[in-house]
Simulated assay, not measured.
Amino acid sequence: MFLFAKSIAGFSFCILGTRAASAHVKWFSAYDVASQPRGLENVLCQEFELLLGVALLCIFSGCVVERTSLGEMITRSLNRFTEGLLLHTETMIRAICGFFFISLWAVGGILLTPELKTTSALVGPLQLAIAAGLLSRRTTPLSAAGIVVLFGLAVRDYGAFHLADYPIFLGLAAYLALTGLQKNLFGVQPLDVVRYATAVTLMWASVEKWAYPEWSFPLLIEHPGITLGFNNEFYMRAAGMVEFTLAFALAWTPLVRRVAAAVLVEMFISACFEFGKLDVIGHSAIIVVFVAILSDQRPKETDTPAAWLAPVGLCAALTATLLAYYVGHAAIFNTTIL
C-alpha cells in the first residue's frame, strides 16, 4: 500500500513539477550510448509496475472524461484559449524553426542538437540557408531537404541508434515539405505527421531514463529541488513513466492529446528556466510542436476508440519501445538485454 501511494504521489508530482524529465541529459552530462544499459529485470521492478498502473488509470480516466460534458467544456475552453494560435500555426512553426537554425549557426559547431558536434565548414551555411528558406512557404520544401541532410550527417557521424533520439527532426522536415507543397502524406495531415514523430521521440527518450538513470544523477545533485524529495532512482522511474505516458497521449484522441501537449509545454518551458539558454535553443522546436498540437481544433473523430483501448495501447507501445530499444542496442553494441 505504501509503494502504491508513493507511486501515485511520484507520478502526480512529476507531472506538476518535473524538469529533469524535460531536460535532455546528453546536453548537460557525460554519457556513453554504447555502454551496457540497466537490465530489463532491473527496469521492470515493483516500483515500475506500480507507476505503470497509475499511468494506465490516468490515461483511461482521461479517455472517459473526454466523452462527457466536462470533456466538452474543457475542449471549448481550450478552443477559446488557442483560437489566435490556431490561425497562425504554420507561421509560428516556421518562425521558431528559423530561430532554432539561426541559433545553431550562431553557436557554431553543432549539427542539430548540442551534443551532435561537427567541424564541417558547410554545416553553418546550410543552417542559415534552412532558416532563409522558411521565410516563404514556397521554399520550405528546400529547408526540409536541408534538415534531412543534417540528420543524415548526424547518422553518419554518431550512428543510427543515437539519432533514434530525434525522429522529431524528420517529422518537422515532413511537415515543412508537406505544408509548402500543400499536400498530405497518404491522407495524413502534416501536423499529424510531426505529432506522431514527436510522440516516438519522447517515448524513446523515456526508455533512456530507465536504461541509464545514472546519466541524470549529476543533474539531480546540482539541482536537488528537482527531485521533490524522492530518491534519485525512484524519481527517474517516475519521470520516465510520466514522459512516456504523455508521449503516448500525443498519439491518442483529440482532447487527450491536447491536454498532454499542455502539460508538456509547461514541463519543457519550466526546464528552460532551470537549465538556461542551451535548453531554450535545443527545445524550441519541440515546444512549438506542442503548442501547435494544443491549438489543433479539428473536429473530434467520429470513430473515437473505446476508453479501455487506451490502457491496452499504452501497454503495447511500452512493450514495443522497450523491446526495440534493448534488442536494437544489443544487436548494434553487443550488450545484454536482461
Rank of each mutant, 00 (worst) to 15 (best):
L3C: 12
F4H: 08
C14Q: 08
L16K: 08
T18P: 00
T18F: 04
A20T: 09
A20S: 14
A21H: 02
A23N: 04
W27I: 01
F28R: 07
F28G: 00
Q36H: 09
G39Q: 07
L40M: 15
L44C: 10
L50E: 12
L52D: 04
G53Q: 06
V54D: 03
L57K: 08
C58Q: 06
S61E: 09
E66G: 02
T68W: 10
L70T: 09
G71D: 01
M73G: 09
I74F: 11
R76F: 08
S77L: 14
N79R: 10
N79I: 05
R80N: 08
T82G: 04
E83F: 10
E83A: 15
H88N: 07
T91R: 15
T91Y: 09
R94A: 12
A95G: 01
G98L: 07
F101P: 02
F101M: 01
S103I: 06
A106R: 14
V107D: 11
L122C: 07
V123Y: 02
L126Q: 09
L128F: 14
I130G: 00
L134F: 12
R137V: 10
R138H: 15
T139A: 11
P141L: 02
L142R: 05
L142Q: 12
I147G: 00
V155E: 11
Y158A: 05
F161P: 01
L163V: 03
D165Q: 09
A174W: 01
K183Y: 03
L185F: 13
V188R: 10
R195C: 01
Y196T: 08
A197F: 04
A197K: 01
A197L: 05
M203R: 11
A211S: 11
A211Q: 05
E214K: 06
W215Y: 14
W215H: 10
S216W: 08
F217I: 10
E222N: 13
P224M: 11
I226N: 04
L228H: 12
F230P: 04
N232K: 10
F234Q: 06
R237S: 12
A239T: 10
E243C: 13
A247D: 05
A251L: 13
P254I: 07
V259K: 00
A260V: 06
A261Q: 02
A262E: 00
E266H: 14
I269T: 14
I269S: 12
C272T: 11
G282L: 02
A285H: 09
I287S: 05
I287Y: 00
F290V: 03
V291H: 04
A292L: 02
L294M: 14
A306S: 09
W308N: 07
L314F: 09
L314G: 05
A316K: 12
A317C: 09
L318N: 04
T319M: 14
V327M: 13
V327K: 10
N334E: 13
T336S: 13
